[in-house]
Amino acid sequence: MAYLNVEGAIKRYGPTTALNGVSFSVAQGEFFTLLGPSGCGKTTLLRSIAGFSQLSEGKVSLDGTDLLSVPPHKRDIGMVFQDYAIFPHLTVAENVAFGLKARKVAASEIRDRVAEALATVRLSALSERLPAALSGGQQQRIGIARAMVVKPRLLLMDEPLSNLDAKLRLDLRDEIRDIQRTIGIAAIYVTHDQEEALAISDRICVMDGGSIEQIGTPQQIYGQPATRFVASFVGTMNLLQPSTFGLPDVPGVAQWALRPERLRLAEAGAAGHGASAITGVVEHFTYLGREAHLTVQAQGNRLVAQIAAPPPDLVIEAGREIQLSFDRADLHAFDAAGQRLQTELAA
């Protein structure tokens, strides 16, 4: 079933280890994302698959054949770069045709396929322009068309949206996802933006310090983070000290965690069955329209609460005492090593 297989990938740069025994597999047609902070090894891993960086140890196979013994230009793997890497001396159409020429495709076929690829990324009107005059978003569209048009066996994307502004990032994100689905190609996408990863991926691999923290669907990564690192890197997480807010001592639990959207405003003493009440002092109140953010100090914990659809008359001054409550079933539990624990409380 596995299409791409990475086994025990290790990469050392002198005394430092950039990849510390990483294994995963990607299925045909799957959109797989490597997510992590900068320096976590995700780009090294991607470049090793492309062949621009050599693993110190480990195996990579694609469609059942060993990849590491194949030189980079014969791997037939498309790549989209963070800095676009559009050839400035070639026109938009020539950029897209570049890979087809290397494959000795007939001129007439090149013309058709380039036209089709440019239509897919909505750049047909600009095909004879030089790229220097184009915007970042347009350049990255060329990069995507150029990588896709050769119908590679695998598509790699190295933070392709990180140099674009926020609005464009959302648009192009959806476009990339649509194009990948239409073609049905397996893709590996590298990003440090957790929201982007949740939005675009079939599965996400969260990495930190050269190791995999968790592999799972966006729902699993967000809803059942396997480690404390994943919990706080993907989305926001309130970390609660044990033995606060009347939480029972559970053997092994070093820390409780709670998503901000699971905290709600409550009347004093109104916590129901299976719920805990919090009394705290408001530090900040930020009204954002569709939601409101509260920062609250309570029993030595600093908690963030996100109130969805706040009533228009909701105004909370800083310094005021406030009641919050949460369901204990929404708690996540982590042991001293930061690993997720299954408890009865956090069922």
Binding site: A50, P71, H73, G78, F81, F87
Partner: peptide, 27 residues
């Protein structure tokens, strides 16, 4: 020029020599 230009050409199927001649030299 930056190495990603040549890497792009290599990922599109050009050998490193070809990539250097077709991309880096013209630039």
């Amino acid at each position: 020029v930056g190495p990603s230009m040549e890497e792009a050409a290599i990922s599109l199927g050009y050998s490193p020599v070809q990539a250097f001649m077709k991309v880096t030299i013209p630039l």
